[in-house]
Computed example of a mutant assay.
Amino acid sequence: MTGTIQEAMRGFAVGLTHVGCVREENQDAYFIDEAKGVFAVMDGAGGLNGGAMASDLVKKALCTISSPRSAVDLLEQFETRVVAAKDRIETAAKTVNDGPMGTTIAALLTYGANFACLWAGDSRVYRYRNRQLEQLTTDHTEVQELVDRNVLSKEEAKTFARRHVITRAIGSGLELALDVVSGNLQRGDRFLLCSDGLTGHLDDAVIQSFLANAAPNASAQGLVKGALDGGGSDNVTVVIVDIDSAASGEGVTRI
């Protein structure tokens, strides 16, 4: 993510989260700040209220990001807030929750004509461009490591008993390490940020069909409904970001 501004672009976003059909508590959270170019999805994990607290602590930390002076400034502010959130989560785990707690994160930062994706865990960022869907993130999970080493096929991974075990997170006693990918924005790009409650039920072809054929709010609602119709075994959260769209959509929605 460079500081060079070619043609300033802006992301307009909608977000939607649902507790699902099985869980009693929604431990997911999302964050949208169109003016500052910060978008994120967090999927918390922990004991009673622990996961929800962890994801909310990250969300509150992101709220303190100030208007960036450059792409580098935005990236540095984001990373500083995530580190601060990790410290607060670990303190809360000891004093409030009395057990491990943490959260994944999948974030999109935009500045000028540039973007960066940062993530830890198995929440994902996709980009839909020129009728092609591309997963920009790689899951930090035990099962993904086995797939990468050719121990398991992608089909075997779908039913692997430990497929939900993550290897990176903010908190949960895991070392904080964010992966980063960056590039240039194009007018018409559509990004999807989501928790694994979506990708656990919908494959990429179905996700692409929703992103290709509807306005942002309708796409978000269709994706969440698809996950619920597939069983809704987990909380499900989506954020859709359209680059340089004509209107900002209808804002964020929580159900």
Rank of each mutant, 00 (worst) to 15 (best):
T110Y: 08
Q135Y: 03
L133S: 05
R124W: 02
D122E: 09
Y126H: 05
R129T: 09
L109Q: 11
T137N: 03
G121N: 00
E134K: 09
A113T: 14
R129S: 11
L136M: 11
G112E: 04
T138S: 07
Y111Q: 04
N114R: 15
R129L: 09
Q135H: 02
T110F: 13
G121V: 02
Y111W: 15
S123N: 02
L136W: 05
E134W: 00
Q144D: 01
E142F: 13
A113W: 10
G121F: 07
N130Q: 14
N130A: 14
Q132A: 12
D122V: 02
R127F: 01
F115E: 08
G121H: 09
H140A: 11
L109M: 13
S123C: 12
T138F: 01
E134L: 11
L133P: 03
H140T: 04
N130I: 02
S123I: 05
T138K: 12
N114H: 08
N114L: 07
A113H: 15
Q144P: 11
T110L: 14
Q132P: 01
Q132T: 12
A107Q: 09
Q132Y: 06
H140E: 10
H140Y: 03
T110I: 14
Q132W: 00
L109P: 07
G121K: 05
W119Q: 08
Q135N: 07
G121P: 09
A116Y: 00
N130W: 00
G121W: 14
D139P: 04
R131K: 05
Y128F: 15
S123Q: 00
Q132F: 01
G112S: 07
L136G: 13
A113P: 03
R131G: 01
N114P: 01
N130P: 00
L118V: 07
Q135T: 04
R131A: 07
A116Q: 02
L108T: 00
D122G: 04
E142Q: 15
D122K: 06
Y128H: 07
F115I: 06
G112R: 12
R127V: 08
Y111F: 15
E142S: 08
S123F: 10
A107F: 09
A107M: 09
V143H: 10
T138A: 09
Q144H: 10
R127Q: 10
C117F: 08
Q144K: 13
N130T: 06
F115K: 03
Q144S: 12
Q132S: 14
L133A: 05
T137I: 05
R127M: 03
H140S: 01
C117Y: 04
A107N: 03
V143Q: 05
T110C: 15
D122R: 06
S123Y: 00
S123M: 07
C117A: 15
Q132C: 05
E134M: 09
T110K: 11
V143M: 14
Q144M: 14
L136N: 06
V125L: 12
G112H: 01
Q135L: 14
E134A: 06
L118I: 13
V143A: 04
R129V: 01
L108K: 10
N114T: 02
L109S: 09
W119A: 07
G112A: 12
R124T: 02
R124I: 02
Q135V: 05
Y128L: 15
F115L: 13
A120L: 10
T110P: 13
T141G: 06
L136Q: 10
R124N: 06
C117K: 07
N130Y: 01
A113S: 15
N114W: 01
D139W: 11
R127G: 00
C117T: 13
R127W: 01
